[in-house]
Each structure stands twice: as structure tokens, then as C-alpha cells.
Amino acid sequence: MIVGLPKEVKKQEYRVALTPAGCEMLAKQGCQVVVQRGAGEGSGFADQEYEAAGAQLAETAQEVWSTAELIVKVKEPLPEEFDYFRPNQILFTYLHLAAAPNLARALMERQVAALAYETIQSPGGGLPLLTPMSEVAGRMSVQEGAKYLEAFQGGRGVLLGGVPGVPPAEVIIIGGGIVGTNAAKMALGLGAEVVVLEKNGDRMRYLDDVFQGRLRTLTSNPYNIANAVRRADLLIGAVLVPGARAPRIVTEEMVRTMKKGAVIVDVAVDQGGSIETIDRATTHENPIYEKHGVIHYAVANMPGAVPRTSTLALTNVTIDYVLQLSAKGFQGAVQHNPMLALGVNAYRGAITHPQVAEAVGASYTKLESLW
């Protein structure tokens, strides 16, 4: 199989979907790997390293897309890439279709076999290809939140950990999954007072046990959320429903009650955002905006700010699936691996993931009916 690696086109996205090590593994499997020049530079991988690993370099994205049977990316294709789509071409990347109905339509119209990293699911409900980026984003949410709490950034002028005689900042985290847990680690490490709101009782017991009572947990309901949001110096949205649009947990009225100069970081912005006042995604170049006196950080590709770490973490978990797709083909790999089958969002002009179908207003078609 010919595997293509185009350069990411999303603004300030420096990650890459294959490392030279991954290219070497594919080449040893008998694949031809076509890499667009400069694709790995943002993550510190030079073109010469890909060539040494057995890849062929292409000058343009069009050359990669037109040649490859399997395209591997990091971020969802943007409109300028839609014309590259071909029937039965395999696309393997983060898609986040719930927040991108135009992309869903393009994949259907061009009959692309599209697999999303974020909906591949283990039997226990884990999201193995989303987890490493959730870990990065969770940790970054506190790092970025602490920065924008500084007065010259427009924030309250509060140090997360306080100092002796001065209380620490209060960090409210909505959602106790991978993002929330990693955000809590960072916030506690900096000395903040941390509250996690979570609706799953077993998860709250887990967090209480792991953090040995150093954070507080609250059942996530509108009453508790409203009271917690009012107290927050830093509010972190860490809610995810696989494949679906993020539910709006924090209302605009709640945001109005927040302290002037408080900061919101919504990690769910790439799935539409879990906070009502997050009405648009931002970029690393212009990451924040102010609404109701509160700083809103809404960057949709947070891990792109630390591309070396993020690329290595991501490709560590994606490469096995890329090898399966390239060795067995789309149908063979998907039928062999039920986890991979859950990653299929679009195939032969149909939406094959129920939550995605509901989110984009399309009919849901069972994948098995399309063989």
C-alpha cells in the first residue's frame, strides 16, 4: 500500500502523523511512504531523516494526496483540502466531525473511508488514540490558565499556589476523565485549591483515592456547577462524549457571575465547547478573548504548541493501527479489529458512527451493511 503523509495546514499546527521511525516500520512491511517536504520540521524531524527511513519526498500536498491509498494526518482536513479527496481513499486522523458538518458532507460526497482517532474505543470504554493528546491538553490547560491569570494578560493577578499567608487560587475542573485528571495533577503540583465536578461516582472515588484527599470532588449537577463556577479563578472545561458534540455544561448566566479577570480554558472546544460563552475557536497566535469580564482561552489544537512531545506521544499509539490498515487494507483491518471498526466515521457515502450521525444531522448506517 502507498501511505501518504501531507504537511498539516491548520494554522500553527506543527505536529506530524508519522515519525521517521514509523516510516521505517512501514517500509519494512513493504509499503511505499510518500512524505511532503517539510511535514516533520515543526516537530524536529528533517526531510533527510524520512528519506533515510525509506520514504519518498513529494513537493506538494496534491502529489501526496493523489498518490496515496492511505492518508495519515493529525488534524481534520480543512476546506482547501477537500478537493483532494478520492473515492475509497483511506483517511486516518482526528476528525471531530460533530463540530465540522461541512467536513462530514465532503467525506460523504467523495466516498472517503474516514477513520477518526478520537472514536477508536477499547472494550473497557477507553479512548487509546485520544488519551495521549488529552494528557497533553489537560496539563497545558493549567499552564495556559496560570499565564492568563497574570494581570498584564488581563487576568486577576492571582498566583495559582499563593504564598504563605495568602490563599491559593481556586481551580474548578468540570469533568474527571483523562483531561480533568491531568489538569488536577498540574494544578495541585502548583499548589492550587482544586475542585473536580464529575457525574460518575466510581470516577470520583478513584480521584479521591489517587489524590489522597488533596482535591475535592463534587457531583456534577447544575446547582453545584453554578456555585463552583462563581468561585473559580480558573475554570477548565474537560467534558467529552466520544463522537458527539460536547454538551453545554456551563451557561452564559453562570459565566456572568464569575470574578472579573477569571480565566476559562475549554479543552472541549474542538468538539464544539462545553461552556456556552465559548462561541468560537481561537489560535495559538490569538488564543484569548474577553466576555463578561472573563478571559476565554479556546485554542482547538492545544497540543500543537508542544509538537515534539505531542507527536511522539501520538505516534506511539497510532502506528500499530497504521500498520494494520496498510497490511490488511481497510476492510480486512476493520473486520479483524473491532476497536478500529469503532473509528470508522464515514464509508461509501454514509455516516457509520451513531453519535456523529446525530451531531451532523445525517442518517446512521451500520458499517456491516456496507460490505
Rank of each mutant, 00 (worst) to 15 (best):
M140A: 10
D208L: 14
N227E: 15
G161N: 01
V210P: 05
R156K: 14
Y148H: 15
F211Y: 02
L207A: 09
L160V: 09
P167L: 09
I178N: 02
N224I: 03
M204T: 12
V210G: 11
F211P: 02
G201H: 10
G161P: 02
N221F: 14
I225R: 11
E193G: 00
N182D: 07
L160E: 01
G155E: 06
Q143C: 02
A187R: 01
E193V: 00
G189L: 06
L190P: 04
G189E: 04
E170K: 13
R205T: 03
A192H: 06
E193N: 00
D202K: 14
A183W: 07
Y206E: 15
A151Q: 04
L197T: 07
G201F: 14
R203H: 01
P168T: 09
D208T: 15
N221R: 15
D208R: 15
N200E: 06
A146N: 01
I174M: 04
F152H: 08
A187S: 03
Q143F: 09
Y206G: 11
M186R: 06
I172L: 05
A184V: 08
V142D: 09
Y223V: 11
Q212Y: 12
N200P: 03
G213A: 07
A183Q: 02
Q143S: 07
R205F: 00
D202T: 14
I178V: 13
M204R: 15
P164S: 12
L197H: 05
R205S: 03
Q212R: 13
G176Y: 11
Q143T: 08
I178G: 01
N200M: 08
G180E: 04
F152W: 14
G161V: 10
N227S: 15
V179A: 02
A187D: 00
